[in-house]
Nucleic acid binder design. Structure first.
Length: 308
DNA sequence: AACACACTCAACCGCAGCTGC
DNA sequence: AGCAGCTGCGGTTGAGTGTGT
């Protein structure tokens, strides 16, 4: 008799339900380590567990899978969740792809706990503040040149940025102002963002070559990113996540974008995902930072922008 | 201490989409 | 084309825990 509630052939007495015991976890982990993920109905049959394939998959994905972070959601992760939820709504699995080590279930629970309650005033305010920082990074540059066109920001579907107080400026303001000045003097060195036909997954812009090692690149970018309070969308731990960004293209045409800092042989060392406005801003900043040094064709590294 | 309420999170359920026959 | 099985997703539930009175 087929058991459509779970996956696989249901044993007499039905599948075991409820919390998993350490012994069951061990059995499941051993089975997956040997046979790999997938074919979950086969897990139910072959592992000796009296659990449905569905239950096995859930336990593995949400609890046993290597690389899971556990622990509290950080403010940076919260920011990502809020921004992506504003873009995509309850697409928890899609959002989870941008938070390595977090599961869709975890994010869904977090959202419901923190932002989906009756008493939403405080939560709405916090969400608005974070969205404000995400969607208008340059508003933090009091009196600065608006580097990206406004229409790009409005292209972020579903986002309705509410104006709240700007983040307090820091000591980096002067340095940034100075860089901006030099930037405007050297705009002729800006690298154009022409589509690269080699990329079939999404629109890819020509790589910008930089002549610094990653550490100094990061130092240069770090002030700017921290200052703009959206450096958290960079992913230094799992550069391979870049590939997930490609595969995360939305069917509904939602525009998101990614950047990759990569070695000359195209191996990613850091990736970024976020709204197009942020991507454009980072590109501008990178162009500015590295064109200042001149001779940026000694390409030890490159970065590339993608629009999905 | 005892109770009520709030919160967290693991796990379940139903459904839709995909694939192979 | 239609069916069955598999997979993954989003919504929901409920047990355990924390906190306030």
């Amino acid at each position: 008799m087929e058991a459509m509630m779970g996956w696989g052939i249901e044993e007499q007495g039905g599948w075991r339900k409820g919390p998993w015991s350490p012994q069951e976890d061990k059995l499941l982990a051993e089975y997956v380590n040997v046979h790999g993920e997938g074919r979950w109905s086969g897990v139910a049959r072959g592992s000796g567990l009296n659990r449905s394939g569905k239950s096995c998959r859930l336990r593995w994905v949400n609890y046993l899978r290597p690389g899971l972070k556990r622990g509290q959601i950080t403010p940076q992760e919260e920011g990502i969740i809020i921004e992506l939820h504003a873009l995509w709504g309850n697409k928890w699995s899609a959002i989870a792809r941008y938070l390595p080590g977090r599961t869709d279930n975890e994010i869904k629970n977090y959202w419901r706990t923190h932002f989906k309650k009756k008493d939403t005033k405080k939560q709405d305010k916090r969400r608005s503040q974070i969205l404000k920082q995400k969607l208008h990074p340059y508003d933090n540059h009091a009196g600065h040149h608006q580097l990206q066109p406004k229409e790009e920001e409005t292209s972020m579907k579903g986002a309705s940025p509410t104006h709240v107080e700007d983040k307090t400026t820091t000591s980096t303001t002067h340095e940034l102002q100075s860089q901006d000045d030099q930037y405007h003097q050297r705009q002729d060195q800006m690298v154009s963002r022409l589509p690269n036909s080699d990329d079939h997954q999404g629109e890819c812009y020509n790589p910008v070559m930089i002549n610094q090692d990653v550490a100094s690149w990061w130092d240069t970018m770090g002030d700017f990113l921290d200052y703009g309070s959206w450096g958290d969308l960079w992913n230094l731990d799992d550069p391979a996540a870049h590939d997930h960004h490609h595969h995360g293209r939305m069917d509904n045409g939602t525009t998101t974008a990614g950047l990759k800092l990569a070695t000359q042989n195209n191996q990613a060392v850091a990736t970024y995902c976020g709204g197009n406005s942020n991507i454009r801003a980072i590109e501008n900043q990178a162009n500015k930072a590295f064109s200042l040094g001149g001779d940026y064709y000694n390409n030890l590294y490159n970065y590339q922008g993608y629009s999905f």
